[in-house]
Amino acid sequence: MIELVAITHAAAPPPPARLRAIPVGGLLAVVAPATEEEATAESLWRREELVEELMADCDLLPVRYGTRFADDEDAAQAVAARHATLAAALDHVRGAVEVSVRVIGAEPRATHAALSELARDAVERPVQPPQVLRGAYLVDRDMVDAFAARVAQLQAAQPGSQILCTGPWPPYSFSDRP
């Protein structure tokens, strides 16, 4: 069994050790050996480190955790079946990373608008109190510092609020966008 980890362009440099790239049209399906271990915080972080290592050198679409195939041929076939959609999604995230923001106790609409200004794309997720905003922002790599500065500015302007920002992440929330 192999696990499909990410989709990259065929022009991407060779993946780090432990990962293998299977060419599918103009794309690469990046796979790792599947393990039988149960998911723990440690195993999830290990997986994340692999994807981030890959992301350091190229643009990619992360694949849903736990996506497994019997062999290379099966994986290639599944990727080929969605080739056009995947290529379009990869173009959409080219040169960008994802930043996560959770907001507690601040004005959600104004905060979202101020952050979206610096993002190429944005999605909002449902929230549960006390959170008032849970957003993912697709930010150009060279705009990440500006985005972080904007978060700090919004936090300073709204004392008593919490703006919890993490990233940069691989574009998990933008992998199915055109």
């Binding site: 679409l61 990727v79 995947l86």
Partner: peptide
């Protein structure tokens, strides 16, 4: 992100 994000591609999704 790992469990709810990323591209969904047909295949066995196994989660312990």
């Amino acid at each position: 992100r790992l469990l709810g994000g990323g591209v969904v591609i047909a295949g066995d999704i196994t989660l312990a």
